[in-house]
Design a protein around this nucleic acid. Structure first.
Length: 576
DNA sequence: GTTCAAGGCCAA
DNA sequence: TTGGCCTTGAAC
């Protein structure tokens, strides 16, 4: 690209491109990491009002589709419930990553609309040269896409449209090498959607079947699938089907959020079903040195083999890569076209996403998955904030999660605040807690066992199958005791000290919860989130009883609940 | 035979 | 020039 004039053309035939070994075009052509353009041929000038956005600007309607009427009907059945019968058509009910128009299918590497497909094809086939008279950062959306072809084409490349998918010989029909990639992408999206649906359905247990029977409209039951996919996750639309974000899109941004050194617990043979290739991660030894038995004299890799199969299995339920990818993906997607974002609101969205992951994790774990939905929800409602705090401690201690990251728009995002549930004043307490755990050589098996202990709390009121929960709790307790004695014999009463940490985590989480609730009541937090639903569920009169399970909850109460407005159906909460 | 992502056509 | 619709043909 001519950086001075903003003139853009294809200086080399895209047909010369030879895709890399992965078929993603990463070999030698402009579709790879660095897109190069030099002036050539006729030029078109940008006539649009430039906006101070980066190339990869996506408007709010893209991130938060607002389909109504017939358009909404394209998402889901009119019942407003999440349909189990998802198919490929549902998956592609998304918006064009270039302009936000309706997607018509996979074109040149990713899901786009018909018009951007045609535009991309014409540009490449005819070797068109465009110029932008503005700042080469024009906002591209459905209504303005015609104004600046330069920025439009740039955005096409940024989001991952592939030059090499335009045929040199103009042969019609048939399939290209991207076919299998499209197939994998579909499968991945379907899987994501189903996992999310499962989480939603589990969540809905807290509301009983009233979500359907009594007309309760949980925010996650009422929103279209599009939103379910795109709000809590980084949108697949911002990347090619191979999950490789357009390189220029990332490069054009000032220090986009980058994940810390990738997590791995390979020593513990962590192979999450969601992790395609866990071995691809390098172990962040600096972060783990203080917290892994292998780094200590008393717990060698040989001793690791003495870890009980159950704990090994527990460790395998951890998917830190997914956790961090989701986190940084969300931060990335939420700040693409935002000059400035509300950081508290963003934090709530991240916490919300973490909650989804948490529900998903819990319902796939031993002990928990055999419980009735009511019991599951009671346990989750009681422990979600504790587990969020613990998860953050784990990410900091074992995966080197930094305290801060820079967003696409240059804003600093306080990652530590996630662990503090938005209460900066708790930082000192949090750090003390972390130091205490570090002294205990708190490691990954410790973490997962403590997490189970938090979740499987037999003291939670209203549990029907107390025996099962207690059995699970005691089994984990015994496993943790055995593990600490076996692998850390020189740390006196490590087990007891770990157990003593639990109330501290709970106290910290409780303060965070209260703070979040206060902010929410002040109208400062996003309303239609699982996070807020959890906050409210805990404040039900029966102290965590399932809401709306019984018929006496009338629609009016439900409506107010859906609006998350504090009312007399909730117990007043005490201020911090 | 069906699918669907290519290229082509043509009214606006 | 754009963009919706049509045709094509390899992969399944």
């Amino acid at each position: 690209m001519d950086q001075q004039t903003g003139l853009m053309s294809l200086n080399m035939s895209p047909f010369d491109l030879s895709p890399g070994p992965d078929g993603s075009g990463s070999g030698s052509g402009p579709s790879s990491g660095s897109q190069q353009y030099v002036p050539q041929g006729a030029a078109y000038q940008c006539t649009s009002d430039s906006q101070p956005f980066a190339y990869a600007n996506l408007d709010a309607s893209y991130l938060f589709p607002t389909g109504t009427g017939a358009e909404a009907g394209a998402y889901l059945p009119a019942t407003g419930t999440v349909c189990d019968q998802t198919d490929t058509k549902d998956v592609i009910e998304e918006l064009c990553p270039v302009c936000g128009d309706k997607v018509s299918g996979y074109h040149y590497g990713l899901l786009t609309c018909e018009s951007c497909k045609g535009f991309f094809k014409r540009t490449v086939q005819n070797k068109k040269v465009y110029t932008c008279v503005a700042e080469r950062a024009c906002h591209i959306d459905k209504t303005q896409r015609k104004r600046c072809p330069f920025c439009r084409f740039q955005k096409c490349l940024d989001v991952g449209m592939k030059l090499e998918a335009v045929r040199a010989d103009r042969m019609r029909g048939g399939r290209n090498k991207f076919g299998p990639m499209y197939k994998r992408d579909r499968a991945r999206k379907l899987q994501m959607m189903r996992q999310r649906q499962i989480a939603v359905q589990t969540l809905r247990g807290s509301l009983g079947d009233s979500g359907l029977v009594l007309g309760f409209s949980s925010p996650y039951a009422a929103v279209p699938v599009k939103q379910e996919i795109q709000i809590p996750q980084v949108s697949s639309l911002t990347s090619s089907p191979e999950s490789s974000p357009g390189p220029a899109m990332l490069a054009a941004q000032p220090q986009p959020p980058q994940p810390p050194p990738p997590p791995s617990h390979d020593k513990w043979e962590t192979h999450s079903p969601h992790s395609a290739s866990p071995d691809a991660f390098a172990f962040d030894t600096s972060a783990n040195n203080a917290a892994t038995p292998s780094s200590t004299a008393e717990a060698t890799s040989t001793e690791t083999l003495r870890v009980s199969p159950m704990i090994r299995e527990f460790v395998q339920t951890i998917d830190d890569r997914e956790w961090q990818n989701s986190l940084f993906g969300l931060l990335q997607s939420q700040t693409y076209n935002q000059c400035e974002v509300d950081l508290f609101e963003l934090m709530c969205k991240v916490l919300d996403q973490n909650l989804f992951s948490q529900v998903d994790w819990a319902r796939n774990t031993v002990f928990f998955k055999y419980l009735k939905v009511d019991d599951q929800m009671k346990l989750l409602q009681h422990s979600w904030s504790d587990m969020l705090v613990l998860d953050h401690l784990h990410q900091r201690m074992h995966n080197g999660l930094p305290d801060e990251t820079t967003l696409h728009n240059g804003q600093k995002f306080d990652l530590l605040c996630l662990g503090l549930l938005g209460v900066p004043a708790l930082a000192e307490h949090f750090n003390e807690l972390q130091n205490k755990l570090a002294e205990l050589k708190f490691d990954v098996p410790d973490y997962i066992c403590v997490k189970f202990l938090l979740l499987l709390n037999p003291e939670v009121r209203g549990i029907v199958n107390v025996k099962c929960v207690r059995d699970g709790y005691q089994t984990v307790q015994a496993a943790l005791l055995d593990y600490t004695l076996t692998c850390y014999p020189t740390i006196q009463d490590k087990f007891g000290k770990l157990v003593m940490v639990v109330p501290e985590i709970h106290a910290l989480a409780a303060r965070g919860e209260e703070h979040l609730y206060q902010r929410h009541c002040a109208g400062q937090a996003p309303t239609q989130t699982l996070l807020m639903e959890m906050l409210h569920a805990k404040r039900k009169p029966s102290g965590g009883e399932m809401v709306n399970r019984n018929a006496e909850h009338n629609t009016s109460t439900l409506d107010r609940l859906c609006g998350f407005l504090p009312n007399d159906t909730f117990e007043p909460h005490s201020p911090l």
